[in-house]
């Protein structure tokens, strides 16, 4: 005897599966069976998921049971009407994607559960108003204990490095000289990477950068500083970047992909107190993506300031931005 066949699929009432936050998502789950079939439950779930190169993240925001009972042979339609969620918004990038899905599966005893999935786009209309605010600074101060441990470790590595250095000077052994150069080279690179930002900033008696939205589509970045060193050039860059973390086992890796970059260089060639203003045209977030942050998956808006100082390490400062669609008060949300 052949197994009874149970087909299940999701239909939307409209052909373009794009919905604005708050808009009703309407359609039906269609079930076709060719023999009497018992169904313990027919849940319909709405949820989002990230996919791409980063570790997956997601959440189910709604779940409804559409049916439980027995189907006689035939086709059944179970309509649904759900409010479109507000966030996160659909995003398709290179390393990071965020998609919303409707999924359903019929819980049929003693058989593989037939399943169906459909994706939908959650996006505000292009050109919709959005909010932009300056985010929390990414600059993280190390704890005092961490600093002390770092200094102790570096001192110990320096002391250990004296052994091959002493041997190299005493014996002039080429092996010892190469080993000693390698040791001190690596140690120097590590030490430089740690102290470079501090050294770069040490020549500024004051440094302040602020962002301000001057109109719906424009952003101004004001930089005030005072220094005795000659600053050759300052470049302000408005950037949107995908940052994802992938990995288990030995390969936990961070991947980055720049989605948008607008560099604005200014020649300075001066010392003393300076003030610069950079004006940016804001890209439409409906095109490049709104700010998104979930574990191991981020879409980051930021302004990066790069100061080229004469005969001194460059200073790089990052101002994170948060770009969100303007909330509509009447929209209900999923909890």
């Amino acid at each position: 005897m052949l197994k009874p066949k149970c087909d299940i699929h999701i239909e939307f009432d409209r052909t373009v599966r794009r919905f604005a936050p708050g808009e009703p998502i309407t359609g039906a789950v269609v079930v076709s069976v060719d023999a009497e079939t018992q169904c313990k439950a027919l849940p319909l779930t709405l949820g989002w998921s990230t996919h791409g190169k980063g570790n997956r993240n997601g959440k189910q925001v709604a779940r409804y049971n559409l049916f439980s009972g027995t189907w006689s042979p035939g086709t059944y339609r179970y309509p649904f009407n759900l409010p479109c969620p507000v966030s996160p918004l659909t995003y398709h990038g290179k390393l990071l994607n965020v998609d919303w899905y409707l999924t359903t599966s019929a819980d049929v005893p003693w058989a593989l559960d037939p399943k169906a999935r459909q994706d939908l786009w959650v996006l505000p209309a292009q050109g919709s108003p959005f909010d932009l605010v300056q985010g929390e600074s990414e600059h993280v101060e190390n704890s005092a204990a961490g600093k002390v441990i770092g200094v102790i470790v570096m001192c110990m590595l320096g002391l250990i490095g004296l052994i091959p250095l002493g041997a190299a000077l005493a014996t002039f052994s080429p092996l010892m000289i190469v080993f000693s150069l390698l040791w001190w080279g690596v140690l120097g690179v590590i030490a430089w990477s740690v102290i470079k930002p501090r050294v770069a900033k040490s020549v500024f008696s004051s440094f302040d950068a602020q962002v301000q939205r001057t109109s719906a589509a424009h952003l101004a970045v004001s930089v005030h500083y005072r220094t005795q060193k000659r600053v050759n050039m300052i470049t302000a860059k408005l950037e949107v970047e995908e940052v994802v973390v992938h990995g288990a086992g030995t390969n936990r890796t961070t991947h980055r992909e720049l989605r948008y970059s607008d560099p604005r260089p200014v020649m300075v060639n001066a010392t003393g107190q300076q003030h610069h203003q950079f004006a940016f045209q804001l890209p439409d977030p409906a095109l490049v993506g709104f700010s998104f942050g979930a574990s191991d998956n981020d879409l980051v808006w930021k302004v990066v300031l790069d100061c080229d100082i004469e005969q001194w390490p460059d200073l790089e400062e990052t101002i994170p931005l948060q770009v969100r669609p303007r909330p509509v008060a009447s929209l209900g949300g999923y909890r």
Binding site: H92, K94, W121, Y260, S261, P283, D284, A286, L287, V288
Partner: peptide
């Protein structure tokens, strides 16, 4: 400086 177009699904 141009906003890259949204990639398709």
């Amino acid at each position: 400086a141009d906003a890259r177009t949204r990639r398709r699904g």
